[in-house]
Design a protein around this nucleic acid. Structure first.
Lengths: 189, 189
DNA sequence: GTCTATAGGAAGATAGAC
DNA sequence: GTCTATCTTCCTATAGAC
């Protein structure tokens, strides 16, 4: 881990990411991105020769890598399934700032850009997420089909709770989602 | 119903709405809106003197009114709760084109616009929706608190399933949501 | 690698004819 | 009410100094 990404690089990505998560691809102007990073436009173009599209793509790739390292890998660990889920919930809470920050996957999948270079990447991240969650449930003894259905439903509820949290101006839906997630997954309803 | 909105007016709103649902507020340029409606920019400004912001606001109000008339009112009808939900599901399927079209409430809540004039409206629509759903569940004999929780969860899953459908390039999550909705609401899990 | 300055074009918005 | 033509502003992107 951290094999090549320096701290400054990670910080740069985090700042760019925050903008895209706030206002989406079209809403993220170079002026805003410049202010958020402290780098002038020309400096951003030095780092990202292909401009905003490259920024969004690298931010998305970076988020995918972060998810893989901090969420999906631990999910594939060797603790009890219930503990692994609890660990994930803590990470999710931090990653989405308790429901105050939106998800890149949602905010970037509306890009008006020509047939979306993000489309495939977004799809892959969703699939990897569902797949990893499903594997944990299979470990917990659930039927493969049931595990798959519940894993996808968990991701659906994560996304939906973030949408409602933003739209209703309260983090309650997201917090409620995190609280009920173990039961939703393991079926103790 | 239909007390003042002419057919052409409704059609205009539907076309504008389709654009905002596809590409969001920032992504919806006047050029795109013009092409989608068949009206030149100046004609759009004649109808909407305050420009794009007014278009988005009226589209949102129009959608709220549509929801109220075609979804929430029938939900408050006098049939069996289960039938009322089934009726809603049919309407939702049509309204979201089987999961192919996104929700305005999600696509417009990212508007980079100054503190969002849509914020309050979006919140109201979410609340009205949850409230109406909750009332049906209370009619069905559920505890008020439980009804409220499940109603909100249904809206969460609606939004989440639309996000996943768009992001994964398949309407399956949305269709799956519609299929399981009655059980999710009435608790026959 | 970062900056100031600016080019070039697309965006939102308006004037005025019909 | 709708149009063509135009204005102004903002945005993306580049040139070139340091």
């Amino acid at each position: 881990m951290g094999r090549k990404a320096s701290v400054e690089e990670e910080d740069l990505m985090a700042r760019l990411s925050a903008v895209f998560r706030d206002v989406g691809y079209e809403g993220a102007t170079l002026t805003i991105l410049s202010e958020a990073t402290g780098l002038k436009k020309a400096s951003l173009y030095h780092r990202f020769p292909q401009g905003k599209e490259q920024m969004a793509r690298e931010v998305l790739e970076s988020a995918g890598a972060w998810l893989d390292e901090h969420i999906l890998s631990p999910l594939k660990g060797k603790g009890a399934p219930n503990d692994r889920i609890k660990d994930m919930i803590k990470k999710l809470d931090a990653f989405y700032s308790g429901g105050k920050q939106a998800c890149l996957l949602n905010m970037l999948s509306s890009a008006r850009i020509h047939e979306g270079p993000f489309t495939q990447l977004i799809k892959q991240v969703f699939e990897a997420w569902i797949s990893a969650l499903s594997a944990v449930l299979v470990d917990a003894g659930l039927d493969k089909k049931v595990a798959s259905t519940r894993a996808e439903r968990a991701v659906v509820m994560l996304q939906g709770s973030l949408v409602l949290s933003r739209g209703m101006g309260t983090t309650r839906p997201f917090r409620e989602f995190l609280k009920t997630l173990p039961d939703e997954l393991f079926g103790a309803v």
